[in-house]
Structures are given as structure tokens and as C-alpha cells.
């Protein structure tokens, strides 16, 4: 049985196109601004300086903020509408920089980062109880301008906010030109996994944010305080793992095996034809 060269070509080109088609339907990873990615740095973390030059080389993730309307006492309008977040880690400590516009510097200006603790899901509003799901606590890293320090806290529902007996979070704020830069730093892992979020490199965890504009209105009342604040939903945070080249080794091995398979197959076919 004889086949023309054009017939063979049709089949082979079709086959190659088919393989390429299979590859084309593979899903491509979406890269939206839904996660904060802390790159690993060698050397010193800019843990004490919100204005360190290195921050300008870190790509920010930007998250929209809403007034806290979920639970009374709510507010319907909050000062901060967008929050820009950058992060770095050195394998031991993680440092997260929040940046947002606030027209005035006030002693009661405050910001916070929230995480889930352990494997249980926690509601983004202070880990408040859920009817059909057993929730866990949240870990809150809090900073207030007039305190000039970080505070490590826990909550499991509104009204349960408590300051931890062991404080692992450091925080520092810097205000200039209508912009707050607030830096939070903590070891990736702590000795209190029941209360502190534990950050393992390479894995995604949930993160949420809150900001209070501590300006006073004409009656002397704080514009935003307690549950009256700007909040974000849950987003993702990842401390990037150190570079891993094992994928290249596996790929090289696979290429070698595939070449070997082809070689043996063609040799067998040739032997069959000549027999």
C-alpha cells in the first residue's frame, strides 16, 4: 500500500496542530490584583523605615475599601477609599507597608491588618460567628498614630477584641503630603499558633485591612472610631518561597526520556520494515 507524500504531510501537520491545540486549552494563571505578594530579600528588611528606597521597587497591590456597614454601629461613608499594599520578607520576618490618602494627620489615625488563625475560616468582620460554619478567630495587627507602636490582638466576634499577652508585632507610621505610610513587621512564625497567624512561604493565606480617619468633627467627636472605619474584604497574601529550580531538572529528565522513547520506537519500526 502506497501513500503520497501529500497524504503523509496532511496527517503529520494535522497531528502537530492537534498537540498544539491541546496545549492551547491549558488554563493560563490569571494575574489580577487580588493578592499581596511578599518577595524574599537577601539582606536587611526595611522594617523600621516606611520611606526606605527599596519600597519604590516593590510592586503594590491595590484594594478598594468600603465603609463598615456589616454590623452596628456602622458608617455609610469612610475617608479612605483605596489602599496600596507592599510586602517583603527575609525568611524570618515579614514586613507589610500600607499606604493610603488621608487629608489630615490626626493623633487617632489608625490602621490594621487582619488574618485568619489556624485552619478554620473566620468571618472578615472580626471573625464573627457564622450560623452554619464553625469559624475560627482572627489575628489583628493594629497601629494608632498616638501610640506609635504595633499591637497584636485577637477577636472571635464583635465585642471580643483582646490584646495578646505576648506582643510580636512592630508598627511604624510616617505621614507626608496627605499620605500615610504604615509599616507592620512580625516574625513569619511565632510560638503561639492558637493566636497568631503563621506564615509559611509559598502558601496563600487570607488577609484583610481596616483604616480609621481619626479626624474630629466640629462637635469634637471622632469621625471614625471602633466599628466605624474603612474596611476591605478578604484577599490573599503570600510570602514567596525561595527560588526552586527542581522544575527545570524534572523537565530535562522528561525531555531525555521522550528522546529515548522516540529513538527506541523508530528503531523498532525500522527493524519491522526491513524484516
Amino acid at each position: 500500500m502506497k501513500h503520497g507524500v501529500s497524504e503523509i504531510a496532511t496527517g503529520v501537520i494535522g497531528g502537530v496542530l492537534l498537540v498544539m491545540g491541546f496545549l492551547a486549552v491549558e488554563p493560563v494563571a490569571a494575574q489580577e490584583s487580588i493578592a499581596v505578594r511578599a518577595q524574599m530579600v537577601k539582606g536587611l528588611l526595611p522594617a523600621d523605615d516606611p520611606n526606605a528606597a527599596v519600597w519604590s521597587s516593590v510592586a503594590p497591590a491595590t484594594f478598594p475599601m468600603s465603609p463598615q456597614v456589616h454590623w452596628p454601629t456602622r458608617i455609610l461613608e469612610a475617608t479612605v477609599r483605596d489602599l496600596s499594599v507592599r510586602a517583603l520578607h527575609d525568611g524570618t520576618n515579614v514586613t507589610i507597608l500600607l499606604e493610603y490618602a488621608d487629608p489630615s494627620e490626626d493623633p487617632d489615625d489608625a490602621a490594621a491588618i487582619e488574618f485568619m488563625v489556624g485552619d478554620k475560616k473566620a468571618h472578615f468582620a472580626h471573625g464573627q460567628p457564622m450560623a452554619q460554619v464553625e469559624g475560627g478567630p482572627v489575628n489583628i495587627w493594629y497601629w494608632k498614630n498616638k501610640d506609635a507602636k504595633g499591637m497584636d490582638m485577637n477577636a472571635k466576634g464583635f465585642g471580643t477584641l483582646s490584646v495578646q499577652t505576648h506582643q510580636d508585632v512592630k508598627a511604624k507610621g510616617a505621614y507626608a503630603n496627605g499620605t500615610w505610610k504604615v509599616l507592620f513587621t512580625r516574625p513569619l512564625a511565632t510560638e503561639h499558633p492558637e493566636e497568631d497567624t503563621q506564615i509559611k512561604t509559598g502558601g496563600f493565606i487570607n488577609i484583610a485591612f481596616a483604616v480609621w480617619d481619626g479626624k474630629k468633627d466640629i462637635s469634637g467627636e471622632l469621625k471614625e472610631k471602633g466599628s466605624q472605619k474603612a474596611i476591605s474584604s478578604w484577599w490573599y497574601f503570600r510570602a514567596e518561597a525561595p527560588p526552586d529550580y527542581s522544575g527545570y531538572y524534572y523537565a530535562a529528565l522528561a525531555v531525555g526520556l521522550a528522546f529515548g522513547f522516540q529513538f527506541i520506537l523508530i528503531r523498532k519500526l525500522k527493524k519491522g520494515q526491513s524484516a
Binding site: V16, V19, L23, E26, G202, A241, D244, S246, G247, Y248, Y250, A251, A252, L253, A254, V255, G256, L257, A258, F259, Q262
Partner: peptide, 16 residues
Amino acid sequence: LLPLIVGWQTYNSTAI
């Protein structure tokens, strides 16, 4: 091409 595609697929499936 075929071995290279195999290698590429392997890399993609092992990469984090």
C-alpha cells in the same frame, strides 16, 4: 518538538 513539549508540560505541572 515532541520531547520539548513533554519537557514544557512537565515543567508546568511541577512548578508552584
